[in-house]
Design a protein around this nucleic acid. Sequence first.
DNA 1: AATGTGACATACC
DNA 2: TGGTATGCCACAT
Length: 110
Amino acid sequence: MSKDFFRDVYDVVRLIPKGRVTSYGAIAKYLGSTRSSRMVGWAMNGSHRVKPKVPAHRVVNRNGMLTGKHHFPTPYLMQEKLEKEGVKVKKDIVIDFKKLFWNPIEELKL
DNA sequence: AATGTGACATACC
DNA sequence: TGGTATGCCACAT
């Protein structure tokens, strides 16, 4: 239990294994507020200035789409990083998103 | 201080 | 089957 919602978000995102991805909703749900998914995205907005670095590129929407790529230094960076980690991205959509999906609730709930 | 907005998700029409 | 409406909470103006 953290004090700040944001901090929780950053913490969870940092725990995302390399080559895996998760969704805003999953994080929000894990934090206890299924409908606070917007906050997760908002938190990511400041993730670039947070240390240690937050792999925001591993966070996509429920559709598996890299909706946040526009917020990166360069839109390509997000996809580049994902592909570098073994995540295939096609047309801004994560391939096998369902398969690569990392559910914090399942992984961290214990 | 109040209003608006946002990298989403779910429910309803 | 797809657009519209609403919920959520923090931050910016």
